[in-house]
Design a protein around this nucleic acid. Structure first.
Lengths: 223, 223
DNA sequence: GCATAGTTCAAACGGACGTTTGAATGAGAG
DNA sequence: CTCTCATTCAAACGTCCGTTTGAACTATGC
């Protein structure tokens, strides 16, 4: 066995933290699915990059789709946790404003995932890509991971915007979801150098997107 | 040969207007690529549905990707034409407002394509899907079809919003592009019955989206 | 009539796909 | 040491993929 974490040992090697085959598969799946989509990425490409045997996928997860499901769940967990935490905090202090809610929803998706470490952008692109995969089957797989907390935000937004019709708030909400996913997937950043790159700085991107959405929610929804 | 238009004849059969193999392939490709994406749709599925031989694709187009390219060009042509026409008309009467520009850009994408006949929604979904395909190669294929007229709109928008920084206008512009594509692809309409369906009526959808975007452009862009 | 060019056809090409198998390998428990 | 069980491995499974081939068919011009 080439590289394997010691089960009982209290230390990992200092230089390269040893990852299990399962973890390596999830990491590479995150990257490759984010780059090429689900259909466009083969298990062989994943297992080669992860230095794992093809059969390891079916041993650890059961199938290609189950691998994707596990990767989505792992990637979404911290985002959902942070969104829940922020919403709890806001609601503990009374009825939140639309801007507070938008910020609490968008920032965990962009910041918490665009910032930290090397893998951040990969995770963001992965989530954004899966959320709007061509296959409805895959999209539902993502929706199942994020629906509960999303429902809470939708209800809070409707309470924060009593002058707008509920359908209008829902319309704004799916627009927020979609724009966030598109920026996460980096599909909006035009291929070459190009005239302008709106997302050169993740922090700026978050502020620009929030300002854009706040204006649209506050004044762009029908009664 | 089962069904084939008579070349010299002056009339087609009254009941079923006969389509050429080439046209049938383009029609079915539009539908299937729009449903399953490029990678998720096989040439065999297309040729079976089009009642054509597999080799017909390579005879008429050369390859799967060339078939997609031809379908994109055909689908985008009327949209681009209409956008150009509207922009010419607006600019002939002086400097257009942001709302006029947004309307002239969004409506041809939604209305002209969502309304007419049975095939409208299929074409819309096809365009929306290809515009944000997981593969950058496919996305560039779409961009090549719509870039020229898009560049004119971007310039006009920047002139209409002198208080906003050019990068901010470009940011709003890609957001408009992305939201339009997402609504066209119907990826934002949640799968089942669901709490609310924001896009029940195409006409309403256009007005809602335009109002949303106008508010965001007018008040949501940084200086 | 015949020749010609444009299309369609069944069949096969090599390769890549997701999945499965059964043996080999490893560490920990008795 | 021996047994056990989790994990890894090379190899093969059958299926589907995009593409190519070469013959058959069709309409038109001579």
């Amino acid at each position: 066995m080439p590289e394997r974490a010691v089960a009982g040992g209290k230390e990992n090697s200092v230089e390269t933290p040893v990852e299990s085959t399962r973890e390596r598969l999830l990491n590479v799946a995150e990257q490759r699915f984010g780059e090429g989509g689900y259909e466009g990425t083969s298990l062989r490409a994943i297992t080669v990059a992860a230095a794992a045997n093809i059969a390891a996928v079916n041993y650890h997860f059961g199938s290609k789709e189950a691998l994707l499901r596990a990767a989505v769940a792992r990637a979404m967990a911290p985002v959902n946790t942070e969104r829940r935490r922020r919403l709890d905090q806001l609601e503990a202090k009374g009825r939140p404003t639309a801007e507070q809610l938008i910020r609490a929803f968008v920032e965990p998706g962009l910041e918490l995932v665009l910032r930290r470490g090397e893998r951040g952008p990969m995770v963001a692109r992965f989530i954004g890509r899966i959320a709007f995969d061509p296959s409805q089957r895959i999209r539902e797989l993502y929706a199942a991971e994020s629906d509960p907390v999303e429902a809470r935000y939708l209800a809070a937004l409707q309470a924060a915007l009593p002058r707008a019709a509920p359908e209008s708030v829902a319309f704004g909400y799916v627009n927020m979801l979609g724009l966030l996913a598109l920026h996460q997937s980096q599909a909006l950043t035009r291929p070459p150098g190009d005239p302008v790159d709106p997302a050169d700085d993740p922090g700026k991107l978050a502020e620009n997107l929030i300002a854009f959405l706040v204006a649209a929610f506050d004044r762009g929804l029908r009664a």
